[in-house]
Amino acid sequence: MEAAAGPVPGVAPARRLPRAVGVALATAGLLAVTAASAAVTVAVGKPDGRPAAAAPAPTVAASASVSAAASPSPTPTAVPVPVPVPVPVPTAVPTTPKPASTVKGTVDGGKHEGDLRYFLLPIPDGGESYGPADGMTMSNDDVADQFGKQDGIMDILGSYGYKEGASRMYRTADGKAEVTVTLLHFGSTAMATAFVKGYTVKSQDPIDIDGDPNAHGYVKKPRQQAYTGSMTGISSQGDVQYTIDVEVKGTPDKALLSDLMKRQREWLASGG
């Protein structure tokens, strides 16, 4: 992936869906294609506020005149004592529980059935979803976008028995990373495995993915630490191929990607 441009002062970067990066699919007699992985620039900024200048203390001028003549002593008067008014105690408002997802799916022997969105890695506690919390079912156009809308891409995917796709994007609770998970459902375990073997990302440095024996990954380090770095992990479990893209400020730590890939693999294997 190309390194993201530097932040523009005073302008918040727009979040966007995946951008194109070079990808080659090693398929016998098939076209070479260009694929896309998710990339969203992470920029955290604060207004350049300056502390308000302290207001000058008011000047108090006091003057008094004292009469030489003695004034008569005032006659004491009774002052009524105010009756305290009881303050009402606010009543706790019951919280509405978060609605449970109705998306369902099952897995048996590596074969996944039901709604593919069910198998997307759940958003961690405190994470913020971009779009529906359950994720999105991808149209053919959405899938083609992942691969740069190259001519014949759906035919290439069809040669692997492609059925459907699903995706979810979220920001981590600490606001330091944005994660996109993409699932592609193929005709069989063998087809998904073959697709992964021929799926490589150009113009990025390869990295190992710990905890996921079928995975391979790539990293794009930024030219400057103030810019965005990215990582991509590619693997499969059963008849589902999964890609995880991570965008962070500065040089990415592959341990984060390895953890996500491992958990996505376990989720696909167990069905939750």
Score class of each variant (00 low, 15 high):
Asp125Gly: 11
Asp155Leu: 12
Asp245Arg: 00
Met154Trp: 05
Gly158Gln: 02
Gln146Thr: 02
Ala32Lys: 10
Ala52Asn: 08
Pro76Val: 15
Pro90Trp: 08
Ser65His: 10
Arg265Glu: 10
Ser67Pro: 03
Ala5Gly: 12
Asp141Thr: 13
Val196His: 05
Gly49Leu: 15
Gln204Arg: 10
Ser73Tyr: 04
Ala62Thr: 14
Val248Asn: 04
Ser230Thr: 12
Gly152His: 11
Gly165Ile: 08
Ala26Asn: 07
Phe147Thr: 03
Leu120Val: 00
Ser63Leu: 12
Phe186Pro: 01
Lys104Met: 04
Asp142Gln: 11
Glu128Phe: 14
Ala78Val: 12
Tyr218Cys: 04
His112Ser: 04
Ile156Asp: 04
Pro84Asp: 04
Pro84Arg: 09
Arg50Leu: 12
Glu2Leu: 08
Arg19Phe: 10
Tyr162Lys: 00
Glu113Ile: 01
Ala14Gly: 11
Ser235Asn: 07
Ala133Arg: 14
Gly135Gln: 01
Arg223Glu: 12
Thr41Ile: 03
His216Arg: 12
Ile207Met: 01
Thr180Tyr: 00
Ser71Val: 13
Phe147Tyr: 09
Arg15Cys: 14
Leu17Thr: 07
Gly148Arg: 03
Leu25Phe: 06
Arg117Asp: 00
Leu30His: 11
Val33Gly: 01
Ala43His: 15
Thr200Arg: 09
Glu164Val: 00
Asp174Ser: 02
Lys104Glu: 11
Pro122Ile: 06
Leu121Pro: 06
Asp174Pro: 05
Ala61Glu: 11
Val11Cys: 03
Val240Asn: 00
Gly135Lys: 00
Ala269Met: 13
Pro90Cys: 07
Thr172Arg: 07
Lys163His: 09
Ala4Asn: 09
Thr182Leu: 10
Ala133Val: 15
Thr200Asp: 14
Arg263Ser: 13
Asp205Phe: 11
Ile244Leu: 11
Gly29Trp: 08
Leu157Lys: 05
Pro47Trp: 05
Gly165Ser: 12
Thr41Lys: 08
Ala70Met: 07
Tyr242Arg: 09
Lys98Glu: 15
Leu256Thr: 11
Ala26Trp: 00
Ser159Ala: 09
Asp48Ala: 13
Gly271Val: 09
Asp212Tyr: 05
His216Leu: 08
Gly114Glu: 01
Lys262Phe: 13
Thr172Ile: 09
Thr77Asn: 04
Ala100His: 06
Val42Lys: 05
Lys111Gly: 03
Tyr130Gly: 02
Arg19Glu: 06
Gly175Tyr: 13
Pro56Met: 04
Thr180Phe: 00
Arg223Asn: 15
Ala35Cys: 03
His216Tyr: 06
Gln237Ser: 12
Thr228Cys: 15
Ala78Glu: 10
